[in-house]
Design a protein around this nucleic acid. Structure first.
Lengths: 220, 220
DNA sequence: GAGACCATTGCCCGATTGGCGGAGCCTGTC
DNA sequence: GACAGGCTCCGCCAATCGGGCAATGGTCTC
């Protein structure tokens, strides 16, 4: 029996790489490639027999977290494994919060990628060793005070919605425009922005954009 | 006769990808991998019979441009081809100025990657179609007016004063703050900003910051 | 010297931004 | 069921932003 995977990444060579690595691992893989989230979602909806989707978070056009949500919404049974060039803990946590079943940094050695995939296909959740486990999207609040009190602003505490808004902000759009794109009132957008400013510890939209880029949230 | 290549990238799956893609292209390739610039340079110096090195600019530890110079210095005969996730023109030009023999965006389809490699191995220089050629680091000043009037906004037409203001803008400062730093009136700053917006063809300060960074004016 | 370009500033205007408080709804957790 | 947190919306208000029109002085070129 062969495992059917959907690989979504905008870098052809990387898709090539993961395909050949998996095929060389011994097991029988059937791998379909997509260059962006929209194409991937269409493929996944079209033929619903994929065993998993490997999704790059840094995709042009659609923010990775939004893409995760979209996949989870349209194909709830399909496990989504995130592959990211940014391997910091907060990115991983956000991905899991958004519904991902695993988070694999691109710097992971090939054998461990295979391992991680098998873990997820078996119904489990994979996290890289650099990310402390045990905080699978719920127990974060419980621990009284971890060890991140005064350090950098944590993108991890941004809501999914806030990240979506921040994404549009990072395109230089105005409040009215963002509101129209989301079908929200302008006031709601402002509320989100205020919250974003607080989390990122900035005082205006331009600084928010710079902070977002510094944290690798929206590369361009 | 086989071509011996050195692939330097911190993502194992990507190295895997380029290796398998090249090997599948028909020709006989001998591919050695390195995870960072230091390791790559050691390998290149150790056995000087490489035909080319494929270098990712986004490497941890050593800046990509520094890595190019280092390679050129230690192994002057070895053509360095840059592979980058950032495919804008200014990055490509900077890479060529630093001594690279080619610039391949990671979003390039596999067949064209092969093609580009052959071009470089034949002694040529490869640039992606999105980057207008003909300006190989020297002919920029000579040609009276190339053919870039309607295409991208030219940072060159920005006044010195405007660039100074843009610099502060790119730090997320407000008009009042910028005015105070320069000892100007707020109105003057606004006038400069309006002019900057026109040149960059944007409509607000956030977009101006993004445009400036896209052009490599103020990187962070 | 005329003309062109740049930097500077003023006043005025509308549009946008950002923050204040409050409110309802929904989804979790305890 | 109470409670917290997230998302949505409302009104109100001050500050900021962005532009239009006009003016002064400087430098540089033709």
């Amino acid at each position: 029996m062969s495992l059917k995977l959907l690989v979504v990444d905008d870098h052809p060579l990387f898709r090539e790489g993961i395909s050949s690595a998996l095929k060389a691992s011994g097991k029988d893989f059937d791998i379909i490639q997509a260059a962006d989230a929209r194409e991937g979602i269409e493929l996944a909806e079209g033929s619903g027999d994929f065993d998993a989707v490997l999704l790059d978070v840094a995709l042009p056009g659609m923010n990775g977290l939004v893409a995760i949500r979209e996949f989870r919404l349209r194909c709830p049974l399909l496990p989504v494994v995130i592959i990211s060039a940014l391997d910091n803990a907060s990115n991983a946590r956000r991905a899991l919060s958004a519904g991902a079943a695993g988070f694999i940094p691109k710097s992971t050695p090939t054998p461990q990628v295979i391992e991680a995939l098998h873990e997820v296909l078996a119904g489990g959740v994979y996290l890289p060793p650099t990310v402390e486990p045990g905080e699978s999207a719920t127990e974060i609040e419980n621990s009284a005070f971890p060890q991140i009190p005064p350090s950098e602003p944590e993108a991890g505490s941004l809501t999914v919605r806030q990240i979506e808004v921040l994404g549009f902000l990072c395109q230089g759009k105005g409040n009215k425009e963002i509101a129209a794109d989301f079908g929200l009132s302008e006031k709601t957008v402002k509320t989100h922005l205020s919250a974003i400013f607080k989390v990122l510890r900035v005082v205006n939209r331009t600084q928010a954009v710079l902070a977002a880029r510094r944290m690798g949230l929206f590369i361009g």
